Amino acid sequence: MKKANNILYYLVKIGLAFTILGLLLFPGIFTTFLKVLYGDSSLIAIPKQKSFIIGIISFYTLSIPYTIIIFHLNKIVNLLKKENYYNSIIVKKLENISLIFLILSVLYPLINIFLYYGFNIFLYAFTIIPSIILPFLGIVLSLLFFIAAKFYENAIAIKEENDLTV
């Protein structure tokens, strides 16, 4: 069990590091992408084009809930690493993750509509399929985390009851 906790601990830490690195590097990468897309060879670091602003707003709007999920998972894994398995904080964090996935499943289609308008992307198959699959996946993950929270809450109640009888 300790080895599994260590693996989870390091996976979440790597995910957290990649998330922070991605949040820091995205504006530069996106600027380069737009310069290649529009054929702009200027050395101006921050374009003031409408597409740049729409892309940055969309990216950070979707990445904030994801980052919050990573921090919640980090807190859960830290508690598990300390072998503090039966803690009500874990239940709260799992319920929060469930709610955030539900928010993301609603937010993603709205951001897609915003991007379709901003970049004048027509509704082709390569844009429709992720717009259907990802919100559905968010709803499924939300339900799974909610069910895990309820199971964990029941496990804590059973453990407390067993502690009182022994």
Score class of each variant (00 low, 15 high):
61 T>P: 07
89 I>G: 13
112 N>H: 06
25 L>I: 12
114 F>T: 02
49 Q>D: 04
24 L>Q: 09
91 V>G: 06
106 V>A: 14
31 T>L: 08
44 I>Q: 11
100 I>V: 13
107 L>R: 04
50 K>S: 08
111 I>T: 12
85 Y>N: 13
21 L>R: 05
76 I>N: 09
81 K>H: 06
59 F>L: 11
77 V>I: 10
59 F>C: 11
78 N>K: 15
62 L>V: 01
22 G>Q: 03
113 I>K: 14
37 L>S: 08
28 G>L: 09
42 S>F: 04
65 P>H: 02
60 Y>L: 07
29 I>M: 12
71 F>H: 11
47 P>G: 12
89 I>P: 01
100 I>H: 09
50 K>M: 03
46 I>F: 04
34 L>Y: 11
106 V>E: 03
39 G>M: 04
20 I>Q: 08
55 G>Y: 06
100 I>Q: 08
22 G>H: 09
105 S>P: 05
56 I>N: 13
65 P>I: 00
65 P>A: 00
67 T>M: 06
81 K>A: 02
110 L>C: 12
89 I>Y: 14
102 L>S: 14
69 I>R: 09
100 I>Y: 14
15 G>R: 07
65 P>C: 02
29 I>C: 02
86 Y>A: 13
75 K>P: 09
96 N>I: 01
57 I>C: 01
64 I>W: 02
53 I>H: 00
15 G>M: 06
66 Y>S: 09
49 Q>V: 03
90 I>K: 15
73 L>S: 12
61 T>Q: 05
30 F>T: 03
110 L>Q: 08
84 N>M: 11
22 G>I: 02
82 K>V: 02
68 I>F: 11
71 F>K: 04
88 S>N: 12
42 S>L: 03
17 A>V: 15
57 I>R: 00
76 I>W: 04
45 A>K: 05
30 F>L: 00
69 I>E: 05
85 Y>C: 09
109 P>R: 10
78 N>H: 09
43 L>P: 05
81 K>M: 06
105 S>F: 14
76 I>F: 08
49 Q>R: 02
114 F>M: 10
29 I>P: 01
93 K>A: 14
34 L>V: 05
80 L>T: 03
73 L>T: 00
43 L>A: 15
50 K>E: 02
41 S>R: 10
58 S>H: 01
58 S>T: 14
115 L>P: 00
22 G>T: 04
26 F>S: 07
34 L>T: 07
39 G>D: 06
77 V>S: 04
61 T>V: 14
55 G>E: 08
67 T>D: 01
27 P>M: 04
79 L>S: 06
20 I>D: 10
25 L>V: 12
22 G>D: 01
101 F>E: 04
86 Y>C: 09
73 L>G: 08
101 F>R: 01
87 N>C: 12
37 L>I: 00
90 I>G: 10
15 G>H: 06
25 L>Q: 12
30 F>C: 01
38 Y>S: 04
18 F>L: 13
46 I>A: 00
103 I>R: 00
18 F>Q: 07
98 S>I: 11
56 I>Y: 13
52 F>R: 00
104 L>G: 03
97 I>E: 00
98 S>G: 15
96 N>D: 15
105 S>N: 07
92 K>Q: 11
102 L>C: 09
64 I>N: 03
82 K>Q: 15
69 I>Q: 10
